[in-house]
């Protein structure tokens, strides 16, 4: 009989382990952000009081010290920009910007600086920078602590975008992101932070741009992003009861996007539903719909469906927020319109 050797970790801890292993492997990897240590300068048990807003960096300061693990002032433009500059000057910084919404303060550093340097400077510079952010609705965190924003960064040439949906992927993708020579925005969904899943102890990497088929099916393809993968799988289960066979694809990275896997699936199923917890205009859902509309039009038996959040900021009140992210029911309904 096989012995169960699989270890379970939460996504927070998987991400923490990836950072630790990257720092062990390469002395140029540094970590910085607000409260990534906590109680900075206080000494004793008051130091390392936080280890990040959710504890992801907790193990780092005791192991690597203050030269490589740095609390920053609340100065997003400054420390994200310093991450860009440090990357250009030979480090591999991992910058914790806390919530995706806060990257707004550092947008110039990401968009005009990190995203354009390699191109403008004719390929002279490598920019091995990773910016980690938490995102997502569902916690009554209100309009300025809930946005997804991955569509904004997917729009930008020169920036890569990662959206893991499992602890296993989070570890493998973060290790890959840290050792990638491009700037990577790494989005961690708050609703996925605590659930545990199997995560091997040894370091491993998952290449960027390779989607994962979470469930095989033959009647319709659902592409779902981050926390929406779970909802798509629930919808697929319900639909299976009605005799509709759903394939669920998790793109895992949005930039680069694994078009091949998505197109191959749609060519077999003839239908596409994209589930995206973001407002619909110029969204990743729109992009995937456009790719399929352009490249697999002849395979489609009906219109592509996008199931997204409404064109609104994230509301505070639970009664409204419940109506924000796509529900399992909304996904089921969308599938039914084309199957």
């Amino acid at each position: 009989m096989a012995v169960a050797t699989e270890r379970s970790l939460s996504m927070v801890n998987a991400v923490g382990e990836a950072m630790r292993q990257a720092m062990e492997a390469d002395p140029t990897v540094i970590v910085m952000g607000e409260d990534v240590v906590g109680g900075a300068g206080r000494g004793g048990s008051k130091e390392n009081a936080m280890g990040g807003s959710f504890g992801a960096t907790k193990s780092l300061y005791p192991l690597f010290g203050g030269t490589r693990v740095r609390d920053t002032p609340i100065s997003e433009a400054g420390f994200v920009g310093a991450g860009v500059g440090a990357a250009a000057a030979g480090l591999r910084p991992v910058v914790d910007a806390m919530w995706a919404d806060f990257t707004g303060l550092a947008f110039d550093q990401i968009y005009n600086q990190a995203g354009k340097m390699s191109y403008m400077f004719g390929g002279q510079v490598r920019l091995p920078l990773t910016i980690r952010v938490a995102m997502g609705s569902g916690l009554s965190a209100a309009a300025q602590h809930s946005g997804t924003l991955y569509a904004i960064y997917t729009h930008l040439p020169g920036i890569k975008v990662v959206v893991p949906s499992t602890p296993y992927d989070a570890k493998g993708l973060l290790l890959e992101a840290i050792f990638d020579d491009s700037p990577v925005l790494f989005f961690e969904h708050l609703k996925l932070y605590v659930a545990k899943g199997p995560v091997p102890q040894d370091p491993y990497r998952i290449p960027l741009g390779v989607a994962e088929v979470r469930r095989a099916g033959s009647d319709v393809t659902i592409v779902a992003i981050a926390a929406m993968v779970g909802r798509a799988l629930e919808a697929a289960e319900l639909l299976a009861g009605e005799g509709i066979s759903v394939e669920v694809i998790d793109p895992r990275t949005l930039s680069p996007l694994d078009e091949e896997t998505i197109l191959g699936s749609v060519e077999r199923t003839g239908g596409l539903v994209v589930v995206d917890e973001s407002p619909p205009h110029c969204s990743v859902a729109s992009e995937i719909a456009a790719v399929v509309g352009e490249k697999a039009f002849d395979s489609l038996n009906g219109p592509v469906r996008r199931v997204t959040a409404p064109h609104t900021p994230v509301p505070f009140s639970p009664s409204l927020e419940e109506a924000y992210a796509p529900s399992v029911q909304a996904i089921v309904d969308a599938v039914r319109t084309i199957c």
Partner: peptide
């Protein structure tokens, strides 16, 4: 949060 003004 946890970061002293004296540090930051």
């Amino acid at each position: 949060e946890s970061t002293p003004a004296a540090y930051a």
